[in-house]
């Protein structure tokens, strides 16, 4: 679907966020970028979204151009003045699609995340997990082939997080989308991904890759399998090796 070759990013303040990153995103996979903070995983994600330009190297898209993309941030990033319905309408509205014409897509997207009954609610009336569901519905409303997620569940409690992990895997299977997911949680990355790219900081780079061969979607029982345990150990090991000596303190 996408290949990043020799991609680098240096900011104007001299910080090198990424150095010569080579990464392929394959159609239909669930790819997780796992790494300590400051390793440039968010920068790589923003680059794929086209929100920041590489200062070296290039991105090559399979179809020749960037496809429709859904993006989910660490915070729900909803417009507080708009109802849930109008928040999910936003991507369509910016394309000039009227509320009436968009209604069916919006209702579908809200049903996908289990919030069909909350269309009229305002964001502040919702819990953190529900807000994140609205954010996911908004990212899915255009049915993008590629979904980018930047630590979307990091601020949620573990019960909500596990539930959203399962829902995300179900959505991914239903929609057949490719997902690139950023996290610093080893367990989350192993549970969700078909492939993990472990990154190291200063400068940001990929140090190893781990495949998780179990089919999607997975259930809670996957957390007790030997494969899950083995991959968690491998990912933790890779993450430890990726840390520089001062990070380990």
């Amino acid at each position: 679907m996408l290949a990043l070759s020799g991609v680098g990013k240096a900011f104007s303040n001299g910080i090198v966020a990424l150095a010569a990153l080579d990464l392929e995103v394959r159609r239909g996979e669930f790819l997780t970028l796992l790494g300590p903070s400051g390793c440039g995983k968010s920068t790589a994600l923003r680059m794929i979204a086209g929100l920041t330009e590489p200062s070296a190297g290039a991105l090559t898209w399979a179809g020749g151009e960037r496809p429709e993309i859904g993006f989910v941030f660490q915070e729900p990033t909803l417009m507080p003045w708009a109802s849930v319905f109008n928040n999910v309408w936003l991507p369509l509205r910016l394309r000039g699609i009227s509320k009436a014409a968009a209604a069916a897509s919006i209702t579908d997207a809200l049903a996908l995340v289990g919030l069909a009954d909350f269309a009229k609610a305002y964001p502040r009336e919702l819990s953190g997990g529900m807000k994140m569901r609205v954010s996911i519905a908004r990212a899915l409303v255009l049915r993008p082939p590629l979904l980018l997620m930047d630590e979307p569940f990091a601020a949620l409690d573990e019960i909500t997080r596990f539930k959203l992990n399962d829902d995300l895997l179900r959505l991914k299977s239903e929609l057949g989308a490719t997902v690139v997911f950023v996290t610093h949680s080893v367990y989350e990355s192993v549970y969700l991904s078909t492939r993990i790219a472990v990154m190291a900081a200063r400068p940001g780079r990929i140090v190893s890759q781990i495949l998780i061969e179990a089919p999607l979607p997975r259930g809670e029982e996957f957390r007790t399998t030997a494969l899950y345990n083995e991959r968690c150990r491998a990912a933790s090991q890779a993450l430890m090796e990726a840390l520089s000596p001062e990070d380990r303190l």
Partner: peptide, 12 residues
């Protein structure tokens, strides 16, 4: 919200 600004950019 700067993330919303990014989102608006993403959707052109």
């Amino acid at each position: 919200d700067h993330n919303l600004v990014d989102l608006f950019k993403l959707y052109g």
